[in-house]
Nucleic acid binder design. Structure first.
Lengths: 157, 157
DNA sequence: TATTGTTATACTCTATAACTATA
DNA sequence: TATAGTTATAGAGTATAACAATA
């Protein structure tokens, strides 16, 4: 029973390969006892330390209520710290702890290994070309660098 | 407060742009009162008509129990038909109705429009290059043509 | 006994809204 | 009164397992 093979557009391929990439990365960071949501938050906190939870939520496009248990878990593991803002004591200033910074180093290693396996079939030149095309699409589509759109909808990967 | 801008790898860009592409496509087909899960099933049924629900579930990588309400909804709308297999009456033979085939034509139109907007920033030559690179990665990673990996984990996007 | 399809239950996850503390 | 953070509730969606029909 042979299947008809419809022409698959680049948009579908992007969604398909992108979901696969997210899935594989999820498996890798699971070895560090981290979920994609946690890594996304850690990455944002690493990029911009000291922000309030409301600000973080807005940047991730997620309701603030989702951040509370996320921050709770990472704080209990000693990866991030909530410090009270002296000027406005309603606000927290969320920062990475030393352990958190060390863990982000391991996340970066996992990301590098992930990068290699995902693009293993390409030559170095082709990798550069792909990166350039994807960067231009990301910018054209108004995507925030380093922020996965999945946060806005609860679906991570 | 300027942010450090870490080097974003192609793997992350793939996940980010891919999730965005899936999100935008979801919005487009919502105008046809369809979800990504429904479109994925319709596409598979269109490619290989007459298969049983168990076979469909295996190809989508999803538990068979998820297929039941999915098929139910599409059958009630008259888009697909469940016919009993005469040789083995435990099995259904799932097929597209005429309305279902017509709707898939509109889905294809939505997909084409989606394709144009997603790659609007690229030249024709660049579109071909991107399609070639993504196709090779998809094959190298063992992805099934036309099947979005999200089915296997419940997350569609 | 094995397999297809279905139903039922429990579980996870999410958002909405109400609540507390601070401004 | 307005805002940051938290908690509580209810809802949607999922998988696991039990069930009925057919082989």
């Amino acid at each position: 029973m042979e299947a008809k093979r419809p022409r698959l557009g680049s948009a579908f391929l992007l969604a398909q390969v992108g979901a696969h990439a997210a899935q594989r990365f999820t498996e890798r960071i699971a070895e560090l006892d981290l979920t994609p949501a946690q890594v996304g938050l850690l990455r944002l906190v690493a990029m911009r330390p000291g922000q309030s939870q409301q600000t973080l939520a807005k940047q991730l496009g997620t309701p603030a209520t989702r951040l509370v248990p996320l921050v709770d878990g990472l704080e209990k593991r000693g990866l991030i710290e909530r410090r009270r803002n002296a000027e406005d004591r309603r606000l927290y200033a969320v920062e990475l702890s030393e352990d958190g910074q060390a863990l982000m180093g391991r996340v970066a290693q996992a990301g590098a290994a992930h990068e290699r396996t995902m693009t293993a079939v390409l030559t170095d030149d082709e990798r550069d070309v792909l990166h350039g095309l994807l960067s231009r699409i990301a910018e054209d589509q108004g995507l925030t660098p380093g922020v996965h759109p999945g946060y806005a909808r609860g679906r991570l990967s």
